[in-house]
Structures are given as structure tokens and as C-alpha cells.
């Protein structure tokens, strides 16, 4: 077992974990945060996307032991009493169908807009290019990211 300390959604956690534990397992099984989804488990689909120190990663491709001292944001961490503007936008334009890719999509969009609020449509497409969606055809998702951008600019 290896001792690891990391911040998840603003809260500091210290746990003894086995070396084979993925960050995805740490989040879902240790912390019981089930918003992060496992899709392919091999870095292809982006369903398990989380933000680590401002950048997006597939949490199935990261060992939890390597996250010592890191700051992780999962889908649960982006909203408080109210939904985050990106979440609102996804609801308003119906960018969600089965919903499995949505947490990852929202976090990829958030990482982009946090860094570049003036992102172009091309940059938005690029930002979500590592997240597969088999329902929407992506059009609604891009619309949602654009609407979220407007909302965030107004804030």
C-alpha cells in the first residue's frame, strides 16, 4: 500500500492505496464520486476526463499514486448550490442524450474556457476532440459550449 495525498474538488484526502489503483478507481470507489464515468478504460473515449492542475486527463490512464499533491476537479466539483454555466448551457440546448459522455465533455469545455474565454469554434472542437459522443453528433455540444461562453462572459 502507498500513502497518497491529493485535493479533490477543494477537499484534501489522504489514503493508503494499492499501486495498481487508477485515479478513476480512486475517485469512484474510494471517494464514491460516481459522476466520473468509465467508458473504454484505455484512453480512447474521454468519458473519465478529469481536470488535474488545470489540464484535462483521462483518469483511466493515470495511476492514483502519481497524483501526490495534485489538485483534481471532477464534475461534482464545478457547481455549488447552482449549476455551473456550462451545465446550464448543456441543459438549455439539449446537448445531453444518454449523458454518459457529458461529465467529460463539460470538463473539457471548462478547462478550455478557464484558460481562454475567447476561444473560437475551432478551438472548442479541438478541446472536445478527445471526448467521444455516440448520440448527439457533436453539433448540440458545440452550441452548448458557445452558449456557456456567452454566459461566462456576462458574469
Amino acid at each position: 500500500m502507498i500513502k497518497v495525498t491529493m485535493t479533490v474538488n477543494g477537499k484534501l484526502y489522504t489514503r493508503e492505496i494499492p499501486p495498481m489503483m487508477r485515479l478513476l478507481d480512486f475517485i469512484r470507489d474510494e471517494l464514491k464520486l460516481k459522476g466520473t464515468k468509465e467508458g473504454c478504460g484505455e484512453g480512447e473515449c474521454g468519458a473519465c476526463t478529469v481536470i488535474i492542475d488545470g489540464d484535462i486527463y483521462n483518469s483511466c490512464m493515470v495511476l492514483a499514486t502519481s497524483c501526490e499533491g495534485k489538485r483534481i476537479t471532477t464534475i461534482e466539483g464545478i457547481s455549488g448550490a447552482e449549476l455551473h454555466p456550462i451545465q446550464e448551457a448543456f441543459l438549455e440546448v439539449n446537448a445531453v442524450q444518454c449523458g454518459y459522455c457529458t461529465p467529460g465533455m463539460i470538463l473539457s469545455a471548462k478547462a478550455l474556457l478557464d484558460k481562454n474565454i475567447n476561444a473560437t469554434e475551432k478551438e472548442m472542437k479541438e478541446a472536445i476532440s478527445g471526448n467521444l459522443c455516440r448520440c448527439t453528433g457533436y453539433q448540440k455540444i458545440i452550441e452548448a459550449v458557445k452558449l456557456a461562453q456567452k454566459k461566462l462572459k456576462k458574469r
Partner: peptide, 9 residues
């Protein structure tokens, strides 16, 4: 190469 998540890693 890959997508943003993979390139970050």
C-alpha cells in the same frame, strides 16, 4: 497525436 487528454499525459 491522440487528443488533448492524451497529449497532456
Amino acid at each position: 497525436m491522440g487528443g488533448p487528454q492524451i497529449r497532456n499525459n
